[in-house]
C-alpha cells in the first residue's frame, strides 16, 4: 500500500489532486459524473465582491497543446456564492474546499475574505493576484513584490484561515514575489496562473478573442509551471500548490519533485471531464512503479 496523503497548513488531503479554479465550476457539474469526494480538495470558481459577467465572447481560443481563455472572472459575486453556490457544493463535496478570491482593489479582497473566513467548509483561501489593480493603472497586483505583499497583509488581517497567494507567471522574477508574500504572512503559494497570449484569425485578419488577449493554459505551459515551482521552492519554505498543464499522475509526481506539496489540475478537466478521477486512480500504481511509498517524501525531491 502506498500513502498518497499530503498536508497543507494543517489540512490533511487524501491525495494531492485539486481541480483548479475556473475549470471545475462549483463542483456540481462534475458530481453528476463521478463521486468528487475522491478529490484531495477543490478550488472553486474565482469569486469577486460584485457579480461579474466577464469579458465579451468569443473568449476561448485553441492553441497548440493548449487554449486561451478571456472569461474575465464571471461569477455571481461573493454574497450569492455564499448563499447559493456553497450550499450546493456542500451537498456533493464533504471535504474542506479552497476558496479562490479575486479583487480589483485591496478593499475588495478584504471584503470577500472577511466573508469567506466565516464559512466552515472553506479550508484554504487562495488569493488570485493576477487581476488588474483599478487604483494603479490596471497593473496586476501580482507583478511587483510590493503590491503582492500589500494584498497578502490585507487578507491576513481579516482571516484566520490559511492564505495561499496565487501568483501570475507574467513576471520577471517569480521567486522575489513569492518571497514577498511569505514575508508578509502568506501560509502558502499557488502557482502558476495562466500566461498571457493571443491568437489571430488569419481569414478574418482579427484577434480571435474579443478581449484580444487571454490566458494560456494546458499541456503547453507545463514546463514553465514546473520551472517556476522549482524556483519558488528554492526561495520560500511555505507549502506550494503547483499547477499549469498537469494532466497525468506522472505530471503530478514531476510537480511534486520540483517542490509542490499539492497539485491542481486545470484545463485538462475541460477536455477530459474524468481526468482528476483517472489521475487519482492511477497515482498508486505510478508511485509503485517509481518506488515511491509515501508521496510526502518526494516533495522537492529533485532539489537534493
Amino acid at each position: 500500500m502506498v500513502d498518497t496523503k499530503v498536508c497543507l497548513s494543517g489540512l490533511t488531503l487524501d491525495n494531492p489532486i485539486i481541480p483548479a479554479s475556473g475549470t471545475f465550476g462549483y463542483g456540481y457539474e462534475f458530481a453528476d459524473l463521478y463521486d468528487i469526494n475522491i478529490l484531495g480538495s477543490l478550488s472553486f470558481k474565482g469569486t469577486t465582491k460584485n457579480p461579474r459577467f466577464g469579458n465579451l465572447t468569443p473568449r476561448i481560443a485553441e492553441t497548440p497543446c493548449g487554449m486561451l481563455n478571456s472569461v474575465g472572472l464571471q461569477n455571481p459575486g461573493i454574497e450569492k456564492v455564499i448563499s447559493e453556490e456553497l450550499p450546493k457544493l456542500a451537498a456533493c463535496f464533504h471535504k474542506p474546499v479552497v476558496a479562490n478570491i479575486s479583487g480589483f482593489s485591496a478593499e475588495e479582497y478584504a471584503y470577500c475574505c472577511k466573508l469567506i473566513d466565516q464559512q466552515p467548509q472553506v479550508g484554504i483561501i487562495e488569493v488570485n493576484i493576477s487581476c488588474p489593480n483599478v487604483h494603479n493603472g490596471g497593473m496586476s497586483f501580482g507583478t511587483t513584490p510590493e503590491s503582492a505583499a500589500a494584498i497578502t497583509k490585507t487578507v491576513k488581517s481579516v482571516t484566520t484561515k490559511p492564505v495561499y497567494m496565487k501568483l501570475s507567471p507574467n513576471v520577471a522574477d517569480i521567486a522575489s514575489i513569492a518571497k514577498a508574500c511569505e514575508e508578509s504572512g502568506a501560509d502558502g503559494i499557488s502557482l502558476i496562473n495562466t500566461l498571457m497570449g493571443m491568437r489571430i484569425d488569419i481569414k478574418r485578419k482579427k484577434p480571435i478573442l474579443a478581449n484580444i488577449t487571454g490566458g494560456l493554459s494546458g499541456n503547453a505551459i507545463f514546463p514553465i509551471a514546473l520551472r517556476m515551482v522549482w524556483q519558488v521552492y528554492e526561495a520560500v519554505s511555505i507549502p506550494i500548490i503547483g499547477m499549469g498543464g498537469v494532466s497525468s499522475a506522472e505530471d503530478v509526481i514531476e510537480m511534486m519533485l520540483a517542490g509542490a506539496t499539492a497539485v491542481q489540475v486545470g484545463a485538462a478537466n475541460l477536455i477530459h471531464p474524468f481526468i482528476c478521477k483517472d489521475i487519482i486512480e492511477n497515482l498508486p500504481s505510478v508511485m509503485q512503479k517509481l518506488g515511491i511509498s509515501n508521496l510526502k517524501q518526494i516533495i522537492g525531491g529533485a532539489h537534493q
Partner: peptide, 17 residues
C-alpha cells in the same frame, strides 16, 4: 453557437446575457 472550452458548463467560456 459560441466558441466553447468544455461543452458541459464548467469553464464559462460561452456565456451570454
Amino acid at each position: 453557437e459560441e466558441r466553447m472550452g468544455c461543452g458541459f458548463g464548467a469553464c464559462m467560456g460561452c456565456s451570454c446575457k
